[in-house]
Simulated scan of single mutants.
Amino acid sequence: MTIRFLKTKAVLSGNCTVEEAEDLVQWLVNHPKAEVNMREVTHLHTASLQAIAAAGNRISALPDDPFCAQALQRLGRA
């Protein structure tokens, strides 16, 4: 996965693996008003999903994959 950490947004793309989950959650916790753009995500490891769920940030764009999108919509922040 590639994570681009911008000023007010984390942009995730490709295959979101367990290796990036810790960096992601740390950034989201340190940027509580930041959004998560996941439009280009092709696979989401459950650790990354848990990181996003734990942080509570708004999801600005859901992935095209229906399964990933549905799981993220259940968080109620998309």
Rank of each mutant, 00 (worst) to 15 (best):
A61N: 04
G14H: 05
Q50I: 00
C16K: 13
H45P: 02
L49Y: 08
Q70I: 02
I52D: 02
Q50N: 09
A54Q: 03
E40F: 10
H43G: 10
A78R: 05
L12P: 15
A78Q: 09
A51R: 01
R77A: 07
G56M: 04
L49I: 02
D65A: 11
V25N: 12
M1D: 06
K7L: 07
E40L: 01
I52R: 13
S13N: 07
Q50E: 06
E35W: 11
W27I: 05
F5N: 02
R74E: 01
V29D: 11
K9H: 15
E22L: 15
A47L: 03
V36F: 09
A55G: 14
L12H: 14
N30P: 06
L49Q: 09
R39P: 00
Q26E: 13
H45T: 00
F5P: 00
A47K: 00
Q50R: 13
T2Q: 04
N57R: 10
A54E: 00
Q26H: 14
V29W: 15
T2V: 05
R58T: 12
S60D: 05
P63E: 03
A53H: 06
H43Y: 09
K7V: 09
P63T: 02
D65L: 08
P32A: 13
T8C: 01
R74V: 05
I59L: 08
E19D: 15
M1E: 08
T8K: 10
N37Y: 06
A78D: 09
E20K: 00
S60N: 00
R58F: 14
A69I: 02
S13I: 05
R58H: 15
M1Q: 07
K7W: 08
D64S: 15
H43T: 07
